[in-house]
Design a protein around this nucleic acid. Structure first.
Ligand code: SF4
Ligand code: SF4
Lengths: 135, 135
DNA sequence: CCAAAAAAGACTTTATATATCTTTTTATGA
DNA sequence: TCATAAAAAGATATATAAAGTCTTTTTTGG
């Protein structure tokens, strides 16, 4: 339970790398993948998703590549993680309480809602700017 | 990411049911499974695990069944979840930082440690006694 | 038009989740 | 002591999701 997938891990590595570059710098996928040690074909898929929702901008053809879609101080880790993993969802009843007919009298249900809230709060409090900053 | 498995969900349902019974009452697996709407064979596997670590006590043969291993106010949801799902681990580097050679300079790493801490804190703050109490 | 690069889609492989079934062991009590 | 009840143990099956690769297509700059 509760474990980030490789896809999620790779996504974060890739987008944090972009966040560390100037906003107008176009980066080659192959360079990014090599720098953050991720299979290039896999990262390609991830960035395609990100491109659709504007998290990154992509440019095709010669001289093409990727750059961050917005200022890194305006993108939270929560946004990145949910984009690639789906909503933070400790238990399915958090999304769809009606799916479980026990949710009406279940004392566990609210606990999962709290867990969701805490996780979202931590991830939502961290921006790509902070993550890309050198220590 | 972050989703409890059926096994985890079933485990909680089963043990919370036990927590709602007197500590000396032996419950039939088939009764528990029916009451909490879980496949009996699956619940059997889960309770076998729990029995080994003392979370529940089991009795074989005629008149056998299960009861809670300790007072419900001394068992936290965290203990139950970790028993069945393994340690709360938002990212693998939290368990084994040395596995990732980036952990030395990674700014994301400490975020996952915070997530782990928050989740453990929420789950650790809830006992089976509270969960079994009628609303 | 050519070459570079991302987009899109199909496909493979591997691992994990979700069970079920059969056999064995243990305990009770008639 | 024998029949029966019940859990333990182990094997097996199926489905789903994760992880990764490959091929073809589209876009763009020069
Ligand atoms: S029993 Fe409670 S915790 Fe489990 S799925 Fe239903 S509402 Fe959620
Ligand atoms: S890159 Fe950072 S967050 Fe990702 S696994 Fe390594 S240490 Fe953990």
């Amino acid at each position: 339970m509760m474990e980030l997938t490789r896809k999620g891990e790779y996504a974060i590595r890739g987008i944090v790398y972009l966040a560390g570059k100037p906003l107008d710098k176009v980066c080659l996928l192959s360079d990014i993948a090599a720098a953050v040690d991720v299979p290039p074909t896999f990262l390609a898929k991830i960035f395609q998703q990100f491109s659709k929702i504007g998290l990154v901008k992509s440019f095709r053809g010669t001289g093409g590549g990727f750059m961050l879609g917005r200022e890194p101080e305006n993108i939270t880790l929560l946004e990145v993680v949910e984009a690639v993993e789906g909503p933070i969802m400790p238990n399915r009843c958090v999304a769809a309480p009606t799916d479980c007919e026990r949710s009406g009298f279940c004392n566990v249900h609210p606990v999962w809602r709290r867990v969701q809230g805490e996780v979202r709060s931590v991830l939502g409090g961290v921006t790509l700017k902070e993550l890309s900053a050198a220590k």
